[in-house]
Design a protein around this nucleic acid. Structure first.
Length: 250
DNA sequence: AAACTACTCAACCGCATAGGT
DNA sequence: TACCTATGCGGTTGAGTAGTT
């Protein structure tokens, strides 16, 4: 028999008194075990309910109120990358919870994303009007590409010498954003941090990095220790201006 | 003013995973 | 290794509210 059945636990909306009990207890004793805490805090709730109430509502620095334009953009962009990984998306928005982001998506942004998805695609490449090519070929000191194409084809550049399985691609994602994705694969064993640094230096030369970072909006930093530990590191850029203005051949 | 509809968001539920024994 | 428990996550629900007829 579950503890819920044994002890007639309360469900539904939280009262101000319950909120205060939980806040007072946590302020005094901290969070130590959600399933035990309610009993000591004098609450007839299960641990999950307490945890949810604290995480989504009572915890200090939980941001209330309307989402800003910037927050909306981050959600839209992140969702196009991560899908319904609400917790991961919320982590990019200080003070917002996964529940908030999920609710806001369903009530405000989903329709917009679907509408956006129906926007016309970029023009197809043809012989008389070739799409611009993007690459590092003409950047001094960088590796020459042996396999690059434009963003319409969805396959842009492949490192085929020093980094045989690393790649960059540009695609138009489901939401109509141009998505530029680069991956560093170090087949089998992790490479050195220098290998990774070299890869990203080639991909984003110094003169491009500053502008590129303005569009990263907190997406994974390619030169982080995390990336080093992960045999694949990647980031994506969704801003059309970035691809148009930063990466075209000179 | 009443009835109905649409929207919002707090909360619940089930499942997956991590960590401990 | 198998089992148990706690925690975290995403899908879903439903009460309350706002807007419309």
């Amino acid at each position: 028999m579950s503890s819920d059945m044994k002890t007639d636990l309360k469900k539904g909306s939280w009262s101000a008194e319950e909120d205060q009990k939980l806040i007072s207890y946590i302020e005094k004793y901290g969070i130590w075990n959600w399933s035990q805490m309610p009993r000591f805090a004098g609450l007839s709730r299960n641990g999950k309910s307490c945890r949810l109430r604290w995480m989504n509502y009572l915890k200090p620095n939980v941001k209330r109120g309307n989402f800003s334009k910037e927050e909306e953009e981050i959600i839209l962009h992140s969702h196009s990358l991560l899908g319904n990984r609400w917790s991961a998306i919320a982590s990019k928005l200080p003070g917002r919870t996964d529940n908030d982001v999920k609710n806001y998506w369903h009530t405000h942004l989903k329709k917009r994303a679907i509408k956006h998805k129906k926007l016309p695609e970029k023009p197809e490449q043809n012989d008389t009007n070739p799409s611009p090519t993007y690459g590092l070929d003409n950047v001094e000191g960088t590796q020459q590409s042996t396999n690059h194409s434009n963003y319409v084809s969805g396959s842009w550049f492949t490192f085929d010498d020093d980094n045989p399985s690393s790649s960059c691609t540009t695609t138009t994602n489901d939401y109509g954003f141009d998505q530029f994705t680069a991956e560093y694969h170090d087949a089998g064993s992790p490479g050195t941090i220098d290998d990774l640094q070299l890869f990203w230096d080639q991909l984003c030369p110094v003169e491009n990095l500053e502008i590129a970072n303005n569009h990263l909006d907190g997406f994974s930093n390619p030169i982080s220790q995390d990336s080093y530990n992960d045999p694949i590191s990647s980031y994506s850029i969704f801003n059309n201006d970035y691809i148009t203005n930063i990466l075209p051949h000179p």
